[in-house]
Design a protein around this nucleic acid. Structure first.
Lengths: 153, 153
DNA sequence: GGTGAAAGAACTAGAGG
DNA sequence: CCTCTAGTTCTTTCACC
């Protein structure tokens, strides 16, 4: 991860669909160099993928919420099973495994409040390992799609 | 948003860097048709952007946390100012404005626990509008980069 | 590592169904 | 809305530095 790698990563974070040629020009190297760097970044797992960012309402997910969940017993088997279960649900867009008073935080999207409620009481609360959960509606979600690298230490 | 639009969106969610030609072939239309559909999806705001997904550790963000924050008074001025402040901090990767007992949930990444602690006590807690916050470390973060469209109702 | 050139592929606009 | 075509641009490889 030298300066050149960082510059390429930054460009791909900003716009993953710009041409290799454009990126090369912006970062000041030949297109072939840029292409090879990008290939290596991908191979090393620095770049994990390229994804279109879609407006949630276009996916009929106009209502979003964070659900904090506590499960028991807190064993690996229970954690892994619950994680796999939640990730598999279509309404779930992200799962955080947490330290602290909440064991999971689940990011959920639904068509409306009614569907969200149905999801919570019909799907989620079916799970026997859940000993408690708390749902908070998201009014606004600002995501930084191009977080800068922090200084090394 | 007909079936064709959805199919194109799905492909771009999965891999935003595949060629228009490949997407056209997969969804079963001519490349020019696919290109025009994609242009319109972008214009309509359905597609908000294309971003590389970068491994947090490569950005020196090996430690991640969710910080729940309560601010007072809960006026628009205070909310907007706090939101702008947090989004501007380099450690912050996402900000959720919430309904419920927490007013904000902030997704933070730092080099290590020490830097995270310094961020919380030196930066965040400087803000006078904060009346309380709670930090939870993220052990694992599974994001679904290709959420499927939910049924219309 | 990086570069430059060259073959092959993709993008994009425009005419036409 | 879709297809076909053609000019332009981009990707990708490879010999060389």
């Amino acid at each position: 991860m030298d300066e050149l790698d960082s510059a390429i990563v930054r460009e791909l974070q900003r716009d993953a669909r710009q041409s290799n040629r454009d990126i090369a020009r912006k970062v000041g190297v030949a297109p072939s160099t840029c292409l090879e760097r990008t290939r290596l970044l991908r191979e090393r797992g620095v770049i994990r993928g390229y994804h279109a960012d879609i407006a949630p309402s276009a996916l009929n997910r106009g209502v979003q919420a964070l659900v904090s969940v506590q499960v028991r017993p807190l064993s690996r088997a229970v954690i892994d099973a619950f994680k796999a279960f939640t990730v598999g649900l279509p309404e779930v867009t992200a799962v955080f495994v947490m330290a602290g008073s909440d064991d999971f935080v689940i990011h959920v999207g639904a068509q409306d409040n009614e569907h969200l409620h149905a999801f919570l009481v019909d799907r989620l609360s079916q799970r026997k390992e859940i000993v408690g959960f708390r749902t908070s509606i998201i009014f606004q979600h600002l995501a930084k799609h191009d977080p800068a690298p922090l200084p090394e230490a």
